[in-house]
Write a protein that binds this DNA or RNA. Structure first.
Lengths: 228, 228
DNA sequence: CGGTGGTTTCTGGCATACCATATAATGAAA
DNA sequence: TTTCATTATATGGTATGCCAGAAACCACCG
């Protein structure tokens, strides 16, 4: 007997003010060019609570989480400050990223489907090295998504989580880091090699290529990017 | 002209109730055998605020941080629960650990001093494989310290930070994980090889050995440890 | 006896008021 | 004019009270 089925869908889950404030703050900090000179690094609790239209309590809970995550520093009775990462810390983040993404590549050769791996081509083949100079911005995006995709292919949620957390910090640097043309072009070559290693299920090689690729970035930042 | 030097030490820094509560809660959760059947996984805000002798506000901020760290889950109007990691999540943690510690080993071959590397012997040579059965407990400690030491030798604070965070979670599992005798003995062999690779500054080899060593642990947990 | 609807209670979410300390402003003395 | 002590103010820290939602309880009805 066929009954008219009532279409049930989950009630709109209204998140708590705390978590929404957390997200909003995180996004705001991420957008902000905190490495530009003269950027305001101090946050004012009361002002923020007015801006967000919430009381200080959920705001402070959100700030406590951001502090735990390392995005802000709360100085008792002094103020709340957006954390500016030092160059050394940025380099460490890239190092950790290298470690995690290379492991992810290894895992991907074991667990990812052929189709999913093939999907990586979309993020690379589009960019012909001939006209890449004109599309550096787009390439930067695709580059990021390429690496995020490898992490995702590993199926390891923890790696995804940690790299995402790092990305929040590194993104601000990227706004000041325009890739040199040669880097972009060589980057694509590296990516193609990585895809090939994944496709042939060569875990050792995929891991090594990804690690070396990211360590090149580290080298580049260490050598050419000026912070502090 | 030599002056009598006044020994300055930082004023007793009385931390905020929030951070002290955070530490206390973290320690309490760490000590608690949360994987024993029947362990109480629910936390009661008001009860805790009474126990700690603080109001709910700083307590809630501490809980927000622990939630961010993944140690507790806050279900709105439902309760606050200590997070019990699933076996899959434990395996992911070990995987991440493998990635980070192997990178740490590679870095250690580049930056650590000979003396520091030599110091690792203290954590291994003490345990003669002959009588290791009688000292499994001590060995377990030394084992942990050995791995922590390698991480420290890398000089990468971020790796140290992340692995420490993982350790908080993994420790509870260790209370239920008695190493099989063969594992302990083979573990020592591995450790000696790792030290040798570090001493000869063989980064590739050190990295590989550490990774394989930790992935053996992962394999073991996957195969023999029962959770959930 | 079982199920249903209403009511109470328990629990976390949030707002607000007050407190303590750090910093800025002020003014008096040198 | 400068310096230093005093006071005022700003800002984060904490306590408390009330609110809303969820779960437990209970009485009533079939």
């Amino acid at each position: 007997m066929v009954k008219a089925q009532l279409e049930i869908q989950p009630i709109e889950e209204v998140q708590s003010l705390k978590s929404r404030t957390y997200e909003a703050l995180k996004a705001a900090i991420g957008t902000m060019k905190i490495y530009d000179a003269g950027a305001e690094l101090r946050l004012d609790e009361r002002a923020l609570s007015l801006q967000f239209g919430v009381s200080r309590t959920p705001l402070r809970e959100a700030l406590a989480q951001l502090e735990q995550e390392g995005l802000v520093r709360i100085a008792p009775r002094r103020g709340i400050f957006i954390v500016r990462k030092t160059k050394a810390e940025i380099l460490e983040m890239i190092t950790v990223w290298a470690a995690l993404e290379s492991m992810a590549a290894r895992l991907a050769t074991e667990v990812a489907s052929d189709e999913d791996i093939a999907g990586l081509h979309n993020l690379v083949d589009t960019f012909d090295s001939a006209d890449i100079e004109e599309h550096l911005g787009e390439y930067s995006d695709a580059n990021i998504r390429f690496h995020a995709a490898i992490v995702a292919l590993s199926g390891c949620k923890l790696i995804t989580e940690i790299t995402t957390g790092l990305f929040t910090h590194v993104r601000a640097i990227r706004q000041r880091t325009i890739f040199e043309r040669d880097r972009a072009r060589r980057s694509i070559v590296d990516h193609k090699e990585i895809i090939e290693a994944l496709e042939t299920r060569n875990g050792e090689r995929a891991e090594r290529l990804v690690r070396e690729h990211t360590l090149k970035l580290r080298q580049h930042v260490e050598q050419f990017v000026q912070l502090d």
